[in-house]
Write a protein that binds this DNA or RNA. Sequence first.
DNA 1: CGGGACGCCTGTGAGC
DNA 2: TGCTCACAGGCGTCCC
Length: 277
Amino acid sequence: MPELPEVEVTRISLAERLAGARVLAARAGKPLRWPLGCQVHSLAGLTVGLLARRGKYLWMPLEGPPARRGGLLWHLGMSGSLALVAGAQREHGSHDHFDLLTTAGMLRLTDPRRFGAVVWSSALDADPARRLLAKLGPEPFDPAVTAARLHAACRARRTSIKAALLSGELVVGAGNIYACEALFVAGIDPRLRCDRLSRVRVERLLAALRLILSRAIELGGTTLRDFRDAHGMAGAFQSEARVYGREGMACARCGSTIRRVVQQQRSTFFCPSCQTR
DNA sequence: CGGGACGCCTGTGAGC
DNA sequence: TGCTCACAGGCGTCCC
């Protein structure tokens, strides 16, 4: 589910509520992608700081005495979501794999496929957090990301532009939905080799990506099935998708039939007329 | 070294 | 109705 917009929507819906809250207890359910890396009871007594996002990860600082302080790095995987759970619903279900009971409510990670993770790290720039974030590209809204720099990065890669976007090494944040949608807006064939993109087309792609990601955040993300923000609200971007999931349907812009191809084991949707090589 | 396939895990919908 | 198969929002690891 969660690409950058869904993770950012989650962050926004949680940050103010949790800031300053005290951790009362924690509970781990079935194993997630990586082990937690600390004892659940060692989290009690720490104070939640301001939630931050890096790529599709959330960083939750946990303040306390120097020997105990650190934070939790969260990832929602394919099917994860975070919710502030009301008191009456504290009984956990079979897909609820991590609970953080705080003075501001209970934060619960629900993740049927368990590709997500919650990992303790003593600091964001210490392992294991440092290692997990080490290969991430720059944030798409970072002003330091310019068309010129993105173009230079593109010229060094021979894979398809779709695969390059998904890798998160050019810029982080685009997953399968937003990579497809941004390439549609930019009018670029997803099969085009990264190093063949002209400077002007890279400029259009960067603008399209920023437009799509910011619009998705405004709309509360995309809810295909599971995604909810921390208050249980579904996103609405799915109704603005122009190509993703629309194989065989008419392109809203030109009427051509939307196609699906497979690139690196992932579906890619595109309009064969609007998107060119 | 870059690039692509694999595997992790569970649920769902389509087709027979 | 019940079975099997394809596919699903991510990403670290392995192999060529």
